[in-house]
Nucleic acid binder design. Sequence first.
DNA 1: CGAAGTTTTGAGGACCTTCAAAAGTTGTGG
DNA 2: CCACAACTTTTGAAGGTCCTCAAAACTTCG
Lengths: 252, 252
Amino acid sequence: MPNTIPFLVKLERRQRISEQARRAFAALPVRRRSIAGYRDIVSEGDRTTHCCMVRSCMVSRYKSLRNGERQIVGFHIAGDMVDLQSLLMTVADHGIRTQMQTEVVEFAHGDLLALIRQFPELATAMWFDTLVDASISREWTLNVGRRDARERTAHLLLELAQRMRDAKLIEGFVMTLPVTQSDLADAIGVSPVHMNRSLQWLRSQGYIRTSGKTVTIEKPAEMTEFADFSTMYLHPEGPRPMPVAGASPALA
Amino acid sequence: MPNTIPFLVKLERRQRISEQARRAFAALPVRRRSIAGYRDIVSEGDRTTHCCMVRSCMVSRYKSLRNGERQIVGFHIAGDMVDLQSLLMTVADHGIRTQMQTEVVEFAHGDLLALIRQFPELATAMWFDTLVDASISREWTLNVGRRDARERTAHLLLELAQRMRDAKLIEGFVMTLPVTQSDLADAIGVSPVHMNRSLQWLRSQGYIRTSGKTVTIEKPAEMTEFADFSTMYLHPEGPRPMPVAGASPALA
DNA sequence: CGAAGTTTTGAGGACCTTCAAAAGTTGTGG
DNA sequence: CCACAACTTTTGAAGGTCCTCAAAACTTCG
């Protein structure tokens, strides 16, 4: 297995990908890079030439205010193609930043565009992937807009655990998050101090245990109930089954 | 012009659409419906068979909490294809609701899927449209997470005015919003009472004037400055220019 | 072992919420 | 065309969540 592409594995967990498409994807030229922590992969306003896949660690998507405050609008874990949207959008509306030293793989836009032109199944698979990102973004808006800090924190931790489990990065409910409490605060829209107090409360309830950057969710069921968390918005059902490639259009 | 499709007009403001694609789109069978106010077009969890284009008025996308609280995660105006994502996503992660009596046009999923299979240019145009929705959603997360109620309110009004202007629904800065202050409160994540006080403050500053459901933005420049509003996230630049259909793939 | 970053604690204050009621607006039927 | 009901907007007051500022305790890493 010379060229396993975690992102392709992710797509294949959702839908069948033809052998040809898989091989064409795996044959694309790539550039491997290792990026230090707290560095922008993409900055707001950038015009990029590549899409970036995370191989290790975690990156955050964020937007900034004039006064320097940041809102993290999403996290990406290993196997995610961050900034897949830059395939179609020439200018970045938000930044993407590493949390710590991160290994990434870059695909040229031109290569990916040619690939999806040749294999519509990959185009819809990628479109679906951006739709899941959009769904997560809506859930974050709900989270930030209508839940209090404790619920938001619990919800965020449950989402990350779920996604890491789906990606086979963890087995149970123990995860290592390469983030500070300030980062978590930026993700749920509270001050670092209040993030700290929210975590203390979750610990006091026995929902979580922390040790360094490792978070253990001790009572997944109770915490899911408390945070009103549901996996529905992650769309585990996958994309709509499509007529197989090469078949005639579904309807005349 | 027997069959002008506002959504198609919207797409064409962003990029060139071939004559064949345009005609195929216009030839699709549609079902016209008129829906009363405050009625769900799509409910959370629904499996739909159609995509819905708004012809008049305005609809809101929303998510609910157990306790009945709602968070509006986006508005759609005339010409928007709401729930375009349902083309690929079989189960709705959020509800879509009319604000008042609304005229809509329905396209069957099967028809649209066949259409985009035949015309990749339409597929990317629609993909881009869902990416703009996603970008708006991120901006809302920032809005709700990091701005205070006055700024949020101003930002929301500026976004709506901008989008209505882009869609040629209004000319200047006078718009009629088929929403109550409670709806606006649900959109920016505050209580109706505080929404009311935010609006009063915006009026007291001379930023806006209201009369019934009509809002006039009196000082667009100052209000844009105040709300830290920028059109960048609406992606006025449009999608990346693609090689013309039928040409060989961009790169070998 | 020291320096830098991160987490924790405390206290006062700002923003926003809730509850409750009054005032204003809209729509409907007599 | 008016009267009434239902809804929406506005006002006031008390209270809670979260913020800011500041400093101490704890970790991590060279």
